[in-house]
């Protein structure tokens, strides 16, 4: 017996341990509804440690989670910014189209009021020097233009074509010093010649006895051979009558804002 035990002592011991465990289990089954002191002690000792580890793990998990979230947020933020920029660009473009539409509608209304055929053109560049007032438009002789044709917008007279290539033309603005046109004052039909003086206009040869007042509207008289009658040139801003001389000195502000000139109409020759 002893010989058997010595020979298989390890296995016997293992079996005994299993039996002991089963017995212990069986014994504990009777108290399963209540806390056992050992358990309480073990819990009391290990729980803070578990809480600490759990806290650390929570913090790490939280950090990791937030980091990932931040990456997502940053990406989302970038996407939103990109979208905002796209929308802002679309909005600006839409505004630009709306404004262009309004300008073209005004031009179209004005075109309908004219008894001559017209050609719409776009201003593509201004005078390269500071001393003169010309602009380049994107229509030329291929489109039926030639030197001398008048150029207008809904607000009034712009100028006349002075150079004409196949696809482009140069327009001399009425504010240029070399520009002159026959005009009349709308209120009492006083005639004169308007010349450009830089940013303003000057009415010349207006007889001294004619009573020209500020804010009087000045129109083309149609006698110069270039501009048809009745186009708005500008408004009188100042009148000066010297004690002597035949004429009075009258200054006008042009009806057209030349710094915002974009689309123009060229009045074609009457058929």
């Amino acid at each position: 017996m002893l010989e058997f035990f010595r020979k298989y002592r390890l296995r016997v011991l293992l079996v005994l341990l299993c039996v002991a465990a089963l017995l212990f289990y069986s014994a504990l089954l009777r108290y399963r509804g209540a806390s056992r002191p050992v358990e309480v002690k073990v819990i009391a000792i290990t729980a803070p440690l578990l809480a600490m580890v759990d806290g650390s793990v929570e913090t790490l998990a939280d950090l990791w989670g937030h980091y990932l979230w931040l990456i997502d947020t940053a990406k989302e933020n970038e996407d939103l910014l990109k979208r905002t920029r796209e929308l802002a660009a679309e909005l600006a473009q839409s505004d630009e189209i709306r404004l262009e539409n309004a300008r073209l509608r005004r031009l179209l209304d004005f075109k309908d009021s004219l008894d001559r055929s017209v050609l719409a053109a776009e201003v593509i560049s201004e005078d390269a020097g500071s001393w003169f007032r010309t602009v380049l438009i994107d229509k030329g002789s291929e489109d039926g233009l030639r030197e001398g044709l008048p150029v207008v917008v809904a607000e009034g007279v712009v100028g006349r074509i002075i150079r004409c290539s196949a696809a482009y033309s140069r327009v001399l603005l009425v504010t240029d010093a070399s520009s002159a046109m026959a005009v009349l004052v709308q209120r009492h039909r006083t005639r004169g010649v308007v010349r450009g003086v830089g940013d303003r206009l000057r009415l010349e040869f207006a007889l001294r006895q004619e009573e020209i007042l500020e804010e009087d509207l000045v129109l083309t008289s149609g006698t110069g051979g270039i501009f048809p009658k009745g186009l708005v040139v500008g408004r009188v801003t100042s009148v000066q009558r010297d004690e002597y001389g035949m004429f009075q000195q009258v200054e006008l502000s042009p009806a057209v804002d030349f710094s915002r000139l974009e689309e123009v109409l060229v009045l074609l020759e009457q058929e």
């Binding site: 020097g129 001393w131 003169f132 001399l172 240029d176």
Partner: peptide, 13 residues
């Protein structure tokens, strides 16, 4: 070239 893009009197610039 400047005369082409500026002014109304060719040859001035």
């Amino acid at each position: 070239l400047l005369d082409i893009f500026a002014g109304s009197t060719p040859g001035l610039y």
